[in-house]
Measured scan of single mutants.
Amino acid sequence: RPLSCPNHEGKTMEFYCEACETAMCGECRAGEHREHGTVLLRDV
């Protein structure tokens, strides 16, 4: 079952931030994590 983002209601966490070692949604990735290296969560 997909994980919901606690910061963006209705968004699914699909990415993993390698710098912060945390899962995130597309909005997180485009925002606070935009300078960080990210991979698809399913690839982690």
Rank of each mutant, 00 (worst) to 15 (best):
G37V: 12
F15Y: 08
M13F: 13
E18S: 09
N7S: 12
V44F: 12
E27Q: 05
G10A: 08
E32F: 07
R1E: 00
V39L: 08
L41K: 09
L40R: 12
G31I: 10
G37D: 15
H8W: 02
A23D: 13
D43S: 09
C5T: 00
R34M: 10
F15N: 08
G37C: 13
C17G: 01
T22E: 06
C17S: 01
P6Q: 12
G31E: 09
C17L: 00
H33E: 04
K11N: 14
T22H: 10
Y16S: 03
D43Y: 00
V44H: 12
E14T: 04
A19H: 06
E21G: 06
T12I: 11
H33R: 02
M13A: 09
C20P: 01
G26T: 05
R29G: 09
A30R: 11
E32Q: 09
R34S: 13
T38A: 13
L3P: 04
E21Q: 07
C5Y: 00
F15L: 06
H33I: 01
R1H: 00
E21P: 00
R42P: 10
H33N: 03
C20N: 03
S4H: 11
C20W: 00
Y16D: 01
R34P: 10
L3G: 14
A19F: 04
C5I: 00
S4R: 04
D43K: 06
T22A: 10
R42T: 05
E32R: 09
E9Q: 14
A23C: 10
H36E: 05
L41E: 10
R42Q: 14
C20M: 00
R29A: 14
G26K: 09
H36A: 03
C17T: 03
P6I: 08
L3F: 15
E35Q: 07
A19G: 12
E18M: 08
E18I: 06
R42V: 05
V39R: 12
L3I: 15
E18F: 05
C17Y: 06
Y16V: 01
E32P: 11
L40K: 10
G31K: 11
M24G: 05
E14F: 04
T12K: 14
R29Y: 07
C25A: 02
A30E: 13
A30S: 10
S4T: 15
C17H: 00
P2M: 15
E9G: 09
E27K: 07
E21M: 03
E32V: 11
T12Y: 15
E18H: 07
F15T: 03
L41D: 06
K11D: 08
F15G: 03
V39A: 12
D43F: 04
S4A: 10
Y16L: 04
A23L: 05
T38S: 14
G10P: 06
S4M: 12
A19C: 08
G10E: 11
T22Q: 07
E35W: 03
C17N: 02
R29C: 07
E35N: 13
R29M: 10
A19I: 01
T38Y: 03
H36W: 02
P6H: 14
D43A: 03
C28E: 03
C28M: 01
H8D: 03
E27G: 08
H36Y: 00
E35V: 07
R34T: 14
E9Y: 05
H8S: 06
T22L: 08
E21W: 00
G37P: 09
D43Q: 00
A23T: 11
E27Y: 03
A19W: 07
M24D: 01
E27A: 10
R1C: 07
G31C: 10
P6T: 11
T38F: 12
N7F: 15
R29Q: 13
R29K: 06
L41M: 15
C28S: 01
G26F: 10
H33P: 08
G37Q: 13
L3Y: 08
Y16K: 05
E18N: 12
P2F: 14
A19S: 11
V39K: 14
G37I: 13
L3H: 12
E9H: 01
G10Q: 05
D43L: 00
F15C: 04
T22P: 01
G26C: 05
L40I: 08
C17K: 02
H8C: 09
A30L: 11
T22I: 14
D43E: 14
T38E: 12
A19Q: 13
P2Y: 15
A23I: 02
E9C: 11
H36I: 00
M13W: 05
T22K: 06
C25I: 01
L40Y: 13
A23W: 06
Y16Q: 04
V39P: 13
C20E: 02
H8K: 13
A19M: 11
N7A: 13
A30F: 15
C5K: 00
R42A: 09
E18Q: 09
R42Y: 09
T22G: 04
C25N: 01
G10Y: 06
E35F: 03
H36T: 06
C25R: 02
M24H: 08
C17W: 00
L3C: 00
F15K: 03
C20D: 13
E18L: 05
C5W: 00
L3T: 14
A19D: 11
T12H: 02
C17R: 01
E14C: 08
T12G: 09
G26E: 10
F15R: 01
D43W: 00
Y16T: 05
H33T: 04
E18T: 12
V44G: 12
L40N: 03
M24I: 15
C5P: 00
N7W: 06
P6G: 10
N7P: 02
E35S: 09
G26A: 13
R29S: 14
T12W: 08
K11E: 13
V39S: 11
S4N: 13
T12D: 14
R1K: 00
Y16G: 01
C17D: 07
A30T: 11
R1W: 00
S4W: 02
R34E: 13
T12V: 03
T22V: 11
N7C: 03
K11G: 09
E18A: 06
T12F: 11
L3S: 14
P6K: 15
G31T: 11
C5V: 00
A30Y: 05
E18D: 11
E9P: 09
A19E: 09
H33Y: 00
C25Y: 04
S4L: 05
A30Q: 15
P6E: 13
L41Y: 09
G10V: 03
M13Y: 05
M24Y: 03
A23K: 12
E18K: 12
K11S: 06
G37N: 14
E9R: 12
T12N: 12
C20A: 01
E32N: 03
T38Q: 15
L40H: 07
E14H: 01
R42F: 01
L41R: 13
E27F: 15
R34L: 09
Y16E: 04
N7H: 02
G31F: 06
L40Q: 15
R29V: 12
D43V: 01
Y16W: 09
E21K: 15
A23S: 09
T22R: 07
A30I: 06
G26M: 07
M13C: 09
K11H: 03
S4K: 11
G10W: 06
N7G: 10
E14L: 07
T12R: 07
C25Q: 05
R29E: 12
A30C: 07
T12C: 03
H8E: 03
A30G: 11
P2N: 15
C25V: 01
C25D: 02
S4C: 01
R42M: 04
E32K: 09
V44R: 11
G31P: 15
A23F: 10
S4I: 11
E35D: 14
L40C: 14
H8P: 04
H36L: 02
E35C: 06
N7T: 15
R29W: 04
C17E: 02
G37A: 14
N7Q: 13
M13E: 08
V39F: 12
C17V: 00
C20V: 02
K11F: 11
R29F: 05
A19T: 12
H36N: 01
S4D: 13
S4Y: 15
G37E: 07
E35A: 10
H36P: 02
P2S: 15
E9I: 12
G26D: 14
L41N: 11
Y16H: 09
E32T: 15
G10I: 09
A30M: 13
G10S: 09
Y16P: 00
A23R: 11
R1T: 14
M13Q: 13
R1N: 15
P6D: 12
F15H: 13
E27H: 07
D43G: 07
C28D: 04
R34Y: 08
H33S: 04
A19L: 08
R42I: 04
M13V: 08
G10T: 04
G26P: 13
T38D: 13
R1A: 11
G26I: 10
E21H: 14
T22C: 09
H33D: 05
C5G: 00
G26W: 14
E14M: 06
C25T: 03
M24C: 15
C25P: 03
G31V: 08
F15D: 07
M13L: 06
P6Y: 11
G31D: 08
L41P: 08
C28P: 02
C28F: 01
R42W: 05
C28L: 01
H36S: 03
L41G: 07
